[in-house]
Design a binder for these strands. Structure first.
Lengths: 333, 333
DNA sequence: AACACACATGTAAACGCTTACAAAACATTC
DNA sequence: GAATGTTTTGTAAGCGTTTACATGTGTGTT
């Protein structure tokens, strides 16, 4: 690999001057600049950014931890990438695999690489660890989770409001017997969404009926099981709200298998608006989880706090909204 | 940030010794090792991998270029991540946005970062550039594309065979009037898939009818348009093979809108087996594109060539296979 | 012609590690 | 107890940049 030294020799200037033209900072006479550029070109010079980082003590890289590389996290990352790219920052992406050990070691690796800042989508790391991280002055934003003590570092979605919106959409169509298939209730988002559902019921003066609630686990099969359980118990309902789109998909299938038409006999709302919800039959009415916007917002936070030292206020809690498609219709068909 | 020097002072040894325990190489007396480890712990020392890379001339990082961060590329990357992680290598992911400028600048950035090797999923970069890259002794694997001159660097899918399999599946069910909705025919994979289709027809002695072919663009809407065009032209067919799942999804919708039942009146096969194909109604019969395996294979190549200097032969062309679900049935219902 | 001042360039120390080589410490053998 | 070998540790020179500071060069003013 060709170094700055070789370029400087060919151009008959000092390496400091070459460095100046690379960073096109300071003043370099146009004439010498041309000379240096010609030399760089001739030698096929590529600045070694490892060395640059060591010397300048910044990597222009933000570390990213996501549970997995596929699925909706990709959307989020591409939101971040879009805004970071404009600022000439890069992302170093690692996966946490939803377990504490991997999440921590991902963060450690990122810190060893001296990332200038971090964007973290964690699932198993403790609040304490993150609070400690904040104490160490590591600039990071925590996505999809809020920890009171470091609230300013958090960007999240208003799950409660989303849950409310979903059920409200059903109620507005005249439904009153509404079943609910929840996600794993040890997860905060599942709880919040369910609470939103309850609020919508309360607001419409519909009595909350515990037996219309089924606790699933966010997977397709639990949507199926939810419907089967409800139906076998002889429950009556004209609509089902689901904790996410996967379960909604399972629910639709199970309803169809039971000879019930969606939405004519039973309306269904999902949550998240994942890619396939638009491909279901009927196309799924759901709550849009603004993954891309969250990714963008996180990147903006980083740009502000870690690179520009501004502390401009950003929106920390994003609002979901309803996407009306075909899986919900008026009560009574 | 605490440095190796501070650790060495606290442990009353030289920095070389600390380095030795970090890399747990060479011989370090157990006693001193304990001493050093205690010091590292006390100071909360994190080796600076930037400095390590500069000194050792390796980054333990493989650069990754994909068109986008979301969609099926995520699956591929996670395949790679899985195998690289076991070897303690990391990935630096960048996006090429399917245009030459971004792809090239991504590669350049990766080289500046002195990645030990690259995995490239490119769409617009010229063969020449890549051949030149190979000449520069940059270890890289090119995914989903084959360039004769650097064949050993390429890992791809047998699209021709996939196209053949898809149409064969239809023919085996007794279909003889088979329409085909192709992807953009300036893309090599679209062409190859179509050729596979033709081969299957030929093998079954079915005359190739140009008017049953529609050229789409791999997007949902072109599946819709394909069906509408064919139907409006008064074409008769009992089955449709599609260049990918998106178009198949569009086709299914259009068929249903035209009052035709899938699969009873018209069978449909897709290609790729993307996530949502399993959620369609009917669940889509399609050709499985082994994205994850390709990612794994690419990572293994890298491990072999760039890190272990072995040159063990790997499978360079992967075979797709048929996933039978519900969108295909016997001709005649 | 002397001076001040801006602008352009060079010198060399740092950044935090690794590693070849040298030195020291210890163990073994005769 | 000297000679030898082995293991452990230290010394110091890199790795390829950036950047504070010093030096040089040119212009305008008096």
């Amino acid at each position: 690999m060709v170094t700055i030294k070789q370029v400087s020799e060919l151009a008959k200037v000092s390496s400091a001057t070459v460095s100046r033209v690379i960073n096109n900072a300071d003043s370099v006479k146009l004439e010498t600049r041309k000379l240096v550029e010609a030399a760089m070109k001739e030698l096929g010079y590529r600045p070694n950014s490892i060395a640059q980082s060591l010397a300048s003590n910044k990597t222009n890289t933000v570390g990213y931890v996501v549970p997995q590389l596929y699925g909706s996290f990709g959307i989020m990352m591409s939101g971040s990438e879009e805004v970071l790219r404009r600022a000439n920052k890069h992302m170093f992406i690692m996966t946490g695999h939803s377990n504490e050990k991997d999440e921590k070691s991902a963060i450690e690796a990122l810190l060893m690489r001296r990332c200038d800042a971090l964007i973290l989508h964690l699932e198993s790391t403790s609040d304490e660890y993150l609070i400690e991280l904040a104490k160490q002055k590591v600039p990071f934003v925590l996505v999809n989770r809020v920890i009171e003590a470091i609230e300013d570092n958090c960007i999240s979605l208003d799950n409660h409001f989303g849950g409310y919106l979903a059920s409200k959409a059903l109620i507005d169509k005249g439904h009153r017997d509404i079943a609910y298939i929840a996600g794993s209730l040890w997860k905060s988002d599942a709880i919040e969404r369910l609470q939103g559902h309850k609020e919508a019921l309360a607001e419409a003066n519909i009595a909350y009926d515990e037996s219309l609630i089924y606790e699933g686990d966010f997977q397709v099969h639990s949507g199926v099981e939810g419907i089967e359980t409800l139906l076998n118990a002889g429950k009556k309902f004209s609509a089902v709200a689901c904790g996410n789109d996967e379960m909604a998909s399972g629910a639709i299938g199970a309803l169809r298998d039971a000879g019930l038409k969606v939405p004519e006999s039973v309306s269904v709302v999902g949550f998240d608006d994942v890619e396939f919800s638009n491909y279901l039959t009927p196309r799924l009415t759901t709550i849009r989880y603004p993954m891309k916007e969250i990714g963008q917002m996180a990147a903006r936070w980083i740009l502000n706090r870690a690179y520009e030292n501004s502390s401009m206020q950003l929106q920390h809690v994003l609002s979901p909204h309803l996407i009306e498609r075909e899986s919900v219709c008026d009560a009574g068909g």
